[in-house]
Amino acid sequence: MKKTILFTPENRAKRAFTLVEILIVIAIIAVLAALTTRVADSVTQAQGRSRAAADMAAIAVGLDAFKGMYNDYPRLSAKGGVENCARRLYKCLAGQSYMKVEDRQVKFIDVDKESDYKPLLDVTLMRIGDPSDPDAPVSNYDNDRNAFIDPWGNPYLYYYDTSIMVGSIGAWEGTSFFLMSMGEDGESAEVQSMFSNGIMPNEDDYRSNVKNVDNIVYGWD
Rank of each mutant, 00 (worst) to 15 (best):
N71Y: 11
G170A: 15
N215I: 07
T44S: 15
V82D: 13
R38W: 14
T8L: 12
G186F: 03
D130C: 11
R145P: 00
K211V: 03
Y206A: 04
P134W: 01
A147V: 01
K3F: 05
D204E: 13
N11E: 12
P201W: 03
C85I: 01
R38S: 15
A52D: 06
E173C: 05
M182F: 00
G183E: 02
V101H: 07
P134G: 04
T36K: 09
L63N: 04
N154G: 01
G68V: 02
A57C: 06
N146R: 07
V217P: 06
L19T: 10
L63W: 03
S181V: 04
T162R: 14
E10R: 07
I149R: 01
S50C: 07
T44L: 13
F66N: 12
K113Y: 09
V138A: 07
M126N: 02
I199S: 13
Y218L: 10
N209P: 06
N146A: 09
G80K: 09
D135A: 03
A86P: 13
A171F: 04
K113E: 14
Y117H: 15
K2C: 06
G170V: 08
A86E: 04
A53D: 05
C85N: 15
V106Q: 08
E190R: 14
V213N: 07
D144W: 06
A52G: 07
A78V: 14
I59W: 01
D112W: 06
Y73M: 00
I29H: 05
K107L: 14
A34N: 14
Q105I: 10
R51F: 00
A52H: 05
C92E: 10
E83V: 01
S188K: 05
G186E: 10
L35I: 02
R51E: 07
S97T: 11
D221F: 04
E184Q: 07
A57G: 08
T37E: 11
Y73D: 11
I5P: 04
V166C: 04
V43P: 06
G95R: 08
I22E: 11
G186L: 03
N84T: 11
I128T: 02
N212F: 03
V138E: 06
R12F: 05
S208Q: 12
G183H: 02
E102I: 04
K211G: 05
V39Q: 12
F148A: 00
A46K: 08
E21P: 08
N202T: 07
Y70S: 11
K100C: 07
E114A: 15
A171G: 13
R207Y: 13
S168R: 08
I26A: 15
R12N: 10
R38Q: 15
Y218P: 12
S208I: 00
L76R: 01
R15C: 10
D64S: 07
R38V: 10
G219F: 00
I26N: 08
D110N: 14
D112L: 12
D133C: 12
L121Y: 01
M165T: 05
G80Q: 14
R104P: 00
D214E: 09
V138D: 07
I164K: 12
Q45I: 03
S42Q: 14
S208E: 12
K211M: 04
F195T: 11
L179Q: 00
S193F: 09
L23T: 04
K107Y: 11
S176A: 10
R127W: 00
P119D: 01
M1V: 09
S188L: 10
I5C: 10
V61K: 10
G167A: 09
A78E: 13
E114G: 14
F17A: 09
S176T: 08
Y159E: 12
